[in-house]
Every structure is written in C-alpha cells, then in structure tokens.
Design a protein around this nucleic acid. Structure first.
Lengths: 220, 220
DNA sequence: ATTAACTATTGACTTACATCAAAGCATGAA
DNA sequence: TTCATGCTTTGATGTAAGTCAATAGTTAAT
C-alpha cells in the first residue's frame, strides 16, 4: 500500500486485510472457475499465473512477486479466469473485494490506487503483446531478464544477480518459446559474456549489451 | 452503461459525459505520451489501439467498436501508453476520469462497472497472449473472425457477414503475423469453403469448422 | 547412498512463417 | 478516362524457431 494515509485511514485499511493465507510451492492460490471473492497481496514468495486452452495448451500470463497484487482477472465474471500457482512457498494477504470496494468509496486514495494497479496490469500486458508479436527469441529473453532484475532491485535485491524461480519451460511459455529455445538463448548470452548462468542462478555481466539486444534502435 | 439505475442516478451519470468528440478516419483519439484526462465511450465508428517500440515496430493491441471503452491504459501513469486511431469516422463520449472517480464513490453500481470493464480488458489480453504464444496462423485468424462476428452480432448485426475495418497488415500486427500470412490464411479458408472473402467483405459459411480450427480438442 | 523423477543442455533435422518479388485490384483525384 | 496510390494476392525461396532425441546435471524420496 502506498504512503500518504493518516492514522485514521491506516486503521481503515487494516480492515481490508481479512486474513493471511499460506500457499506451498506447487499449490494453487486460485484456479480458473473458482468463485472470485478477493484480491491477494503477495507478502512473500513467487507466483505464476497461467491460462489454459480447452485442448490443454498452457500460456503463462505473468510472474508475480512480493508486493504485487493478483486476482483482478476474476472481477469481470465473478469467477477467476486463470490459475495462480506458487513457485515457492508463499504468503498472501486476502483482501475481500467487497471490502476493497466499500472502503475505496470512502478513501479516494485507495480508489485511485486500485485503478492504477489494474491499469498497470493492462499496460504490462500490452508490452507482452509487443514482445510476443514482434520480437525475436533473444530480444524476448533480454527483456524478460531486465524486467525481472529491475523488479527485484526495486525490492532491495541485487540489480545484477538473481535466482530464477521458474523452469525454462515456464519462461518459454511466458515468452512464446519452447524450452530448448530458451536454453539456447541462455547459452548464447553466456558464450558472449553477457551473463553468467548456472541453472537457475543468473548474473548479468553486461546490462548495457542486454538493453541493446532488447532495444536495438537506441544505438542508431 | 448498464441498466439498473434509477432516474436520479441516471441524471448523475449524465454529468460524466462532458462532451462528444468526432474523430475522422485515420485520425488519433489519443497518442502515447498524451496527458491522460478521460476515458472514451465509443458511440460510433471503429478504432485500433497500438503500441510502438522505440525502434519503430508497431503492435496492434486491440480493435474497439461502438459501446466499448478505451483509454484505461492512461490511468497508471497519468499519460497514455498507446495510440488510438479511428479506422472509420467515429464519435466518442469524453468522460473525464476525475468525474468518473467522484461519481463512482456515490454510485456503487458505477464503481462496480468501472472495475469490470478494466478486469474484462485484462482477461481479453490474457486470451491474446494465449493466441500469440501458442496458436498457429490459421487458429489465430479463426479466433479473430469468431470474436469479431460475435461482438458485431451482440450489436444486432449479422453473425455470419462482416466488413473488416482494418487492413491485412493491421490484422497481422494484432495476431503476430505478416500480412502475407494473413492473406494466405484467408485464401485457404476460402478454398476450403469455410468463408467467402472479397477484399474486406467476409461471410462465414461454416462457423462450426472455424470453431474446430480454433479449438481442435473439442472434437476428440 | 541409491534410485527415480525432474530439469537443463546440446545436436541433428524439420517446418511454419517470413521475406522478397511480381502482378492484380480497388479507390479516388485530376 | 487515366493515372497514381494503396491494398491484396500469389509464388519462390530463406530462416528462426520447433521437434526429436540423447545426455547429463539436480533434487527429492526411500
């Protein structure tokens, strides 16, 4: 939650958080078809969200970490439209959406915040569409890595080192690539000295080169 | 706007609509970087929204028709993050977002409506990600056509005939394909008797076959 | 400690779509 | 009517990424 609330308002905000819920690695926070009741603020841990087509194909639609909100897909139809799976043991704050709506009628700042969170998700997905529709494998992976470290850095972690919480297959699903292609792109970056990779551990050695790959035009 | 408001509430809702704005074919309703002030309800006409990368690649992120709301991409950063271009002469209702927020604090039904519209957009984009990440060219085009006629039919138009408002290139951009690939897929469907095509005019002869192509598993 | 079950890497080969190129249609202006 | 312009179709060829397959490294269970 953002700063800028007074003591009284903070008390009200506390009401929103009904209770906490722990989700073990591999378990579902919610799944497609579940009744929608609440948004979830991730306190710790790491999630993926994914949709699956009726013939079983799965598309990872996002990776979410501490401080992020998930569940907004459920508002439109009062039931969830994707699955949220914990990629490591996690804890979330359950925020009943009816309470969020009630309270955001009293607190314009909360109202504004809810709108921004949803808008941010729309804009993020626009970016993913650009990635999937226009970029090549290495550009996609560069964008993915840069986005991940940037978000981790914003949480006080390193801006050059990270431990991936997801498999090559899950990265591939998010980026519209097969796991072998993801693996090859990692190896290529590693061969070129842009990153160091050892399984899930990644160290970014040349962030500027990575940015160049993601966004070639910047240098014309 | 949905039904279920009383006379008094309807009066208030009228306040939201500040004024109307006409946008000629080819003109921008808003563009990336514009200050965000309002959402727009399309009264007539047809729009595309698109984002472009710094090196000039363009990704169409959606096509919008009468009755739909655009501009929600601007909320998060107080400036628009995509371009909205009229594909035919159009008229929109300008709804200043500050007014929408004020009023939706008084009218829970409006508040709920705003949330649903944004959630619907998130879910739609999830579907596009599935399309772009997992489907082949013909599946994408089948899904696209089915979605278009379904929306047109909901507006009282035919469920089998439509006139495309966009070029093959714009369809391709939306679907992550090149215009030649879109054209070939149209020709293939036509050869197989699934549709009749004559330039922008399309008649769906075998909707069930189209659904099968989009969703092969249904028939195992 | 020894499996078993995942996960990741790498190579050989295939393929769906992209690219390049030419020609055919519309639409609108002069 | 004629020309110009922009869209669409179709063919020939190229290529990035997919598929198939073998191997090896990691993690977890017994």
């Amino acid at each position: 939650m953002p700063v800028g609330f007074n003591v009284d308002e903070m008390k009200k905000l506390d009401e929103v958080v009904e209770k906490r819920r722990r989700v073990k690695q591999g378990e579902l926070l919610f799944t497609s078809g579940d009744a929608f009741t609440s948004l979830y603020a991730i306190r710790s841990g790491f999630f993926k969200t994914c949709v699956s087509s009726e013939d079983g194909r799965e598309q990872v639609t996002g990776f979410q970490m501490a401080g992020e909100i998930i569940g907004m897909d459920g508002i439109v139809s009062d039931q969830h439209n994707c699955n949220a799976v914990a990629l490591e043991d996690a804890e979330v704050c359950v925020m009943p959406f009816a309470t969020v709506e009630d309270l955001s009628r009293e607190l314009p700042m909360l109202q504004r915040h809810v709108h921004k969170i949803m808008s941010r998700e729309i804009v993020r997905e626009n970016g993913v569409m650009m990635l999937l529709g226009n970029m090549r494998a290495e550009e996609r992976l560069a964008a993915f890595l840069l986005n991940l470290v940037q978000r981790l850095h914003a949480r006080g972690l390193s801006q050059s080192e990270l431990v991936l919480r997801m498999t090559r297959e899950e990265i591939g699903s998010y980026l519209g690539l097969k796991l072998e292609t993801v693996s090859r792109a990692f190896s290529k970056f590693s061969d070129e000295g842009i990153i160091e990779v050892k399984q899930r551990y990644v160290k970014i050695m040349a962030p500027e080169t990575l940015k160049k790959i993601f966004n070639p035009q910047t240098f014309f």
